[in-house]
Design a protein around this nucleic acid. Sequence first.
RNA 1: GGGUAGAUGGCCGAGUGGCUAAAGGCGACAGACUGUAAAUCUGUUCUCUUCGGAGUACGGAGGUUCGAAUCCUUCUCUACCCA
Length: 425
Amino acid sequence: MNLVEELRWRGMIQDIMPGTEEQLNKEMTAAYIGFDPTADSLHIGSLVPILLLVHLQRAGHKPFALVGGATGMIGDPSGRSDERNLLNEEQLNKNLDGIKKQLSRYLDFDTVKPNAAVMVNNYDWFKGISFIDFLRDTGKHITVNYMMAKDSVKKRIEGETGISYTEFAYQLMQGYDFYWLYQHHNCKLQMGGSDQWGNITTGTELIRRKAGGQAFAFTCPLLTKSDGGKFGKTEQGNVWLDPEKTHAFKFYQFWLTATDEDAKKWIKIFTFLGKGEIDELITAHEKDASQRILQKTLAKAITIFVHGEDEYLKATETTEKIFANKTAPAESLSVEDLEGMEGVEKFDFPRTKIKEGIDIVSFLAETGILASKGEARKMLQNGGISINRIKVDSVQEIINESKLLHQQYILVQKGRRNPYLVKIA
RNA sequence: GGGUAGAUGGCCGAGUGGCUAAAGGCGACAGACUGUAAAUCUGUUCUCUUCGGAGUACGGAGGUUCGAAUCCUUCUCUACCCA
């Protein structure tokens, strides 16, 4: 299977320009994907483009990861119905550093290899270009008619808030990136999410008109969840790659709780397992879905890929403690079990209040597990709170020393999936 | 520059002087069922609360009124039409 066939089978190709497959089969091809510095960490939505680069490199081609130091100052209008807020320079630099650090983990930058990955920042070539130069050398090659025909622009022109000149010009900058990489690194292919198609084709057009060259492109589908929700969002917000922002346990849980439908799609995209193995897994899963083989395999592979083996093991340990033998009393957990619950939010609480005994509503609010007494009361009335694995059915319940595990812990669960450990100081 | 229609809770959208913290839908959270699944059903969803209430809120500011999301003035923004 060649690279394009492989990616197609995995469901990672949405649109592809004619000739792309032939180009990739012909020679080692340099290809790039741009990453926007909108935050100081990438989130799992960026994993798909990262994996495209990894697949590309594995197939012997040369990946370029571009961070948008210049384009990040402008803001991509694609996929947005309103104008972006401009990032200030300090934040931008912080974001660039964070993203660079993460990207460097996933690709092989060993310069001995001819297809070593390269990281570039488009600020490096944009900083020296004056506005006049840009208008004369680049703007002249592309008509406004062409630019306005792009979906991302058309939607905004027809939409409520309009589009600023700044964001309108964005596609020219991204187009220039591609042109620059084509000229300086012989980069002939750009990949990205399907929302990038318009920006990408402006690049190939610019290369054709300005350099008389031919460049190629393909995009991957934007992921959605089977329930139509945004991929990569949970009740806590984005699922980040940075373990400081999203702990490996939560990260693991995200994949483990995928629906069957999503798991079938995602296992092809987010693991490197071959077609045979995946077919077997799907068959096994359908035979006994309650084992959730797909979810477990998916969660394992991707957690190891992003956080490493150790973090994966810790995440499964914590998962065991919290979700396995649900009938086992919380008292059966050892001090080590409780202390070792990686990724479970921990709260301290003063012992004196426990000695006196405190009502459950105040306890939940004062620890910070719930934002206020009102919320705590509502959650209790909904039956959403368990203490030491036993559902609390009275708002009046008193927390005192008899509730302590090993004289100093209380295991609180909000719903089934949100555990908190309160440690009595 | 002239005219017309708009701006309501995370989003969509009803409401045109008191019965409105504001219908309905979506989303989100929780419960039941299950497999930490889906579908379905139920509850919650401005903030705080001693669960009795209290406070803030229908683009901004001011006004009329016992009482305003609703009426008036003005400002800001958006769409459409005319120049």
